[in-house]
Write a protein that binds this DNA or RNA. Sequence first.
RNA 1: GGCCCGUUCGUCUAGUGGUUAGGACUCAGGAUUUUCAUUCCUGCAACAGGGGUUCGAUUCCCCUACGGGCUACCA
Length: 356
Amino acid sequence: MKLATNKEHIKYDRHCLNLSQDEIKAKMEGEPYVIRMKVPDGEEVVFYDVVRERVAIQCDEIDDQVLIKSDGFPTYHFANVVDDHLMGITHVMRGEEWLPSTPKHVLLYQFFNWKLPKFIHLPLLLNPDKSKLSKRQGDVSVEDYLNKGYLPETLINFVALLGWHPKDEKELFSLSDLENEFSVKRINKSGAVFDVEKLKWMNGQYLKNLPIETIMKYAEPVFKSKGWDTKNTEKFKAVIENARKRADTIHEMIKPSIPFYAELEYSDEDNNLLQNESSQKVLTYFSEKLTGQINWTEAEIKLLVNETGEITGVKGKDLYAPLRISLFGEVHGPDIPLLIGILGIDETIIRIQRHI
RNA sequence: GGCCCGUUCGUCUAGUGGUUAGGACUCAGGAUUUUCAUUCCUGCAACAGGGGUUCGAUUCCCCUACGGGCUACCA
């Protein structure tokens, strides 16, 4: 594998620099050629990066960079500098991997006698093993995370905090917060590992604290793709309100919402529990009482649950489990009054009576 | 190999020539909640190593180690 046994820096040998004008003309007629930048000998290129301050490199370390390729197109190094100058670019913010080639760009600005932009080299985003963030070790693009149910608000906030920190200990920043508080002065130098766990936490925070309408907007296409009908806005809103606090991503909101949009499935264990004597007493009393009144407030339902317990003599888990399983399909879930509020009285009665 | 950049809890980070080295995520324990979730409280956990400079270094300088980036007629 070790092809280059010599440890010297491998550079273009400037073979063609000594050609006569005639020779150059002749070669250009018949042979493919490139145009290179002649880097001065023995000098030092110095520039000031906003993050790293003074950066200096010996010209002897810099190869005579190709500016125009043999296909006639400019290389990035050349096009980049020309473009930026023509567009009046004042600040060049890019990843740290560009730092080593910046002297080439600085030289070009000097050759053209153009005003140097400010360079701001940002620390790299890293994989868990600290290598440069790469496709091979997971998702790297914003789209990947958007598709996984992370919110744009989260992504902006999270990435801003990778390599930058405000003066205080605030962590949740809206875009307009960032406009006010972000400063290149507080960008730090070392690369940052992209920690998905913390991303999840932050997304959960946004899920819980953004206006409900915003969450509904993001969730709607995802819920629709499950074939669920979200037209009943009031119900959809209540479902989202319930799901948002038990999820860290839009996709995680699906699971706690299933019982509100899909047919319930019961395990043998659930059916056994629902059929036992105390469960039957609870379900019967509760549904009969429920049927006898049209409008129920959550407070009234709470009272009815208590009353059911008192009348039937069933309490604790034996009281709540049959109700929750028949209505929700699981022992764990939202408060029963809230659950019934979302389901509606009619659907509640239907679901309970199926098991009596 | 060469050149460049970096190094505070596992991770993201604050910070100072003299601090109990602070916060957040994760994890553990607890409180609230009929359950789950939420929320709250408490706890675990770090200045890479060695030399200097200094009354005193995590902080300033040097070296080493380690990590990363770049080394294309890619960007």
